[in-house]
Measured scan of single mutants.
Amino acid sequence: QWKVGDKCSAIWSEDGCIYPATIASIDFKRETCVVVYTGYGNREEQNLSDLLSPICE
């Protein structure tokens, strides 16, 4: 189960590419979260089910 502060990978809606991110907040009722893309600072809402394991850098 994901928690705030977890590192993950998420698909950015603008280009469909996968980027490393950190979970900033979680809404368990809606099963969504807000991620912050590492190195970019962009925030975006994602479905918890769409999150991927962190990418090894």
Rank of each mutant, 00 (worst) to 15 (best):
I18A: 06
T38Y: 10
E57W: 13
I55L: 14
D15G: 06
W12R: 10
Q46G: 05
D15V: 05
E14Y: 15
I11C: 01
K3C: 10
G39E: 04
C56W: 15
S9C: 15
G39Q: 09
V4I: 06
C8P: 00
K29G: 09
A21Y: 07
K7R: 12
Y37I: 01
G41T: 06
C33D: 00
I55T: 09
K7Y: 11
S49K: 14
R30T: 11
E57M: 13
G16W: 08
K29F: 12
V36D: 00
E31P: 02
T22D: 01
G41C: 07
K3Q: 14
I23Q: 03
K3V: 12
T32M: 08
S13G: 07
A21T: 05
V34L: 04
V4E: 13
C56K: 10
D50T: 05
L52P: 03
G39K: 10
E14D: 05
A21P: 05
V36T: 05
P20V: 11
G39L: 12
P54I: 10
D15I: 04
G5L: 04
R43E: 11
G16D: 04
S53C: 08
D27W: 12
I26F: 05
T22R: 09
P54Y: 09
I18T: 02
S9V: 08
Y19K: 01
G41Y: 05
A21R: 06
C56H: 14
E57G: 13
F28M: 11
T32S: 04
K3L: 12
Q46L: 10
G39T: 09
G16N: 06
N42L: 14
G39H: 13
A24H: 13
E14V: 15
F28C: 02
S53D: 14
D6I: 10
W12A: 02
G39D: 03
Y19N: 02
W12Y: 10
P20L: 12
G39F: 13
E31T: 05
G41L: 07
I11V: 12
T22W: 11
F28L: 11
G39W: 14
K29R: 12
G16A: 05
Y40R: 15
V34I: 14
K7T: 10
I23K: 03
V36E: 12
S13V: 06
K29I: 13
D50G: 05
E57C: 13
P54K: 08
K29H: 11
F28D: 08
L48Q: 04
P20K: 06
N47F: 13
L52R: 07
A24S: 07
Q1L: 03
Q46K: 15
L52N: 02
G39V: 10
D50R: 07
W2E: 14
R43C: 13
D15L: 07
G39N: 09
V4S: 06
C8E: 00
Q46W: 07
S13W: 09
L52A: 02
I11K: 09
W12I: 05
R30W: 07
I18D: 02
E14K: 15
G41N: 10
I11N: 01
P20S: 11
T22I: 14
